[in-house]
Amino acid sequence: MSEHAPTSLTDADDRTLAGRAADGDVRAFEVLVRRYGPLMRAYATRILGSNAESDDVVQEAFVTSWQQLSTLDDGRAVKSWMMRIVSNKSIDRLRARREHGDIDDHDPQEPIERSPAHVAESRSQEEALSQALAALPEPQRQCWTLREIADYSYEEIAEQLDLPTSTVRGLLARARKALTREMEAWR
């Protein structure tokens, strides 16, 4: 029995890798870790608002993924499945921060005023969006990230952030207005 070339494993699709990992193949899981680790870190950073705890969150998410992969019916969905675990764990951290009263460290009370000229100095539209996002108050940014990046429904966001759905709508409306204002300045 030959050891099959490891390069084929790195080319394998998500479904095959998830299937192998669900059956206990560490090497296949390692390919998934390398394939989606950076994206998951970026995701955790977006939701948490900083990258201080991203590594921890992603590590926890991978451990949970390893333990629960056999419950995933469609291996093709492993990427979004793991991303959902990352957002759940990130939100758990946010909740823990709130309970410990750490919000002041992370929450700018007022959105930073940005003139169109200032925005025009940014190197690109994406950069402008990134900066505009960072300038949002934390509750607005979180709602927006969960809605637009994580694809959560209003109800799911409300449940995760422990807010009334109407509050979520209001936060999203304000976030969207602020962001479109920034993008308008970029035309």
Binding site: P38, L39, R41, A42, Y43, T45, R46, Q125, E126, L129, S130, E148, I149, R176, L179, T180, M183, E184, R187
Partner: peptide
Amino acid sequence: IALGTLERLRGLTRTLLDRDALAE
């Protein structure tokens, strides 16, 4: 015009994470 802006916002959002990941 505002709809165009919103669509641009959505398009950029979809690639935002990918850009972040590459910038890691």
